[in-house]
Simulated assay, not measured.
Amino acid sequence: MKSIPVIENRWPNQIWNGTRQLVDVPPIHLASLVPAGARAVVVAPHPGDEVIASGGLLQVLAHHGHPLQLISVTDGSASHPGSELWSERRLSVFRPQESAEALRRLGLPLHSLKWIRGGFTDNALAAREHQLSQFISRYLRHDDVVFSTWCEDGPPDHEAVGRATAKAAAQVGARHFELPVGVWHRALRDEYQIPWPRARKLRLDTWTVARKRHAAHAYASQLQGDPKIGLAPALSAVLLERLRQPYEIILM
């Protein structure tokens, strides 16, 4: 399937739309990632990360009948620090509703989906990495295939979740793969930081990509910043544009 064209001069030059390395990433079939009948577990630092990182993968897994478990480490209520418009109290109610709507838009089987909420504090996961690893391990089985954000992704919470999940998976004997998220929006000069030999490309069809982007738009709070305090939206236009790419990148 051909890539959806991007207007080159509209977006800042970043790894996702500038590097030629992406073209050469070899494809991988779902069966090579998750054996038939195996459960897939996705560990997300914040609500919405499961869609941005793996919204296409989740759809493919559900389509092939794999049991799914999501672990949302934080509730995302500290996404707008200092904002009166999006206070932590408001977000603590709003963001779970956004997540439920996003998963519905992905077409996931909500009646059978196991969804764990960790309740850890945003922007403080590195300090509680040991506890986080213990928490995650309680919900893993030895025959699970576990996906998390990459341990060198950039945002500290993403990296802490990647490290903690790797430790938890190793402890129970589960397979663990990583999903780059924040790194794609670094300057093109940083492309060497990605371990390209580990990268594999899970291709997505047009409708899967469309549902992923539709699900991302369920996070209304993240599509808005707070101009009053100069806070930009977490889900920027350039990030949403990246979601048009017809594949997920997985680090083996």
Score class of each variant (00 low, 15 high):
77 S>P: 00
68 L>H: 02
122 D>K: 02
74 T>D: 15
126 A>Y: 01
99 S>Q: 14
97 Q>G: 05
59 Q>P: 07
48 G>M: 07
128 R>L: 10
77 S>H: 06
124 A>K: 01
63 H>R: 14
110 L>I: 03
115 W>M: 04
92 S>E: 06
57 L>D: 10
68 L>D: 05
42 V>D: 00
80 H>C: 04
86 W>G: 05
90 R>G: 13
47 P>W: 14
92 S>H: 11
42 V>C: 10
40 A>T: 04
84 E>P: 02
52 I>A: 14
108 L>N: 06
135 F>G: 08
90 R>K: 15
133 S>P: 09
69 Q>F: 11
114 K>G: 11
92 S>N: 09
45 P>A: 15
50 E>D: 06
65 G>N: 03
63 H>E: 11
52 I>G: 11
66 H>C: 01
100 A>V: 12
121 T>L: 07
40 A>K: 06
98 E>D: 03
114 K>E: 15
60 V>W: 00
86 W>D: 04
92 S>Q: 08
74 T>W: 05
85 L>A: 12
114 K>I: 12
108 L>V: 04
120 F>V: 12
117 R>V: 07
69 Q>G: 04
132 L>K: 15
51 V>R: 08
107 G>M: 09
81 P>D: 00
123 N>I: 01
66 H>Q: 00
130 H>P: 09
111 H>G: 13
64 H>A: 01
79 S>L: 01
53 A>W: 07
118 G>R: 11
105 R>G: 06
82 G>E: 05
100 A>T: 10
94 F>K: 12
96 P>F: 00
67 P>Y: 01
79 S>T: 11
86 W>P: 07
119 G>N: 07
105 R>P: 08
125 L>Y: 08
80 H>A: 05
127 A>E: 15
77 S>D: 04
88 E>R: 14
54 S>P: 08
73 V>M: 09
115 W>V: 09
106 L>V: 03
106 L>K: 02
56 G>F: 03
57 L>V: 01
102 A>M: 07
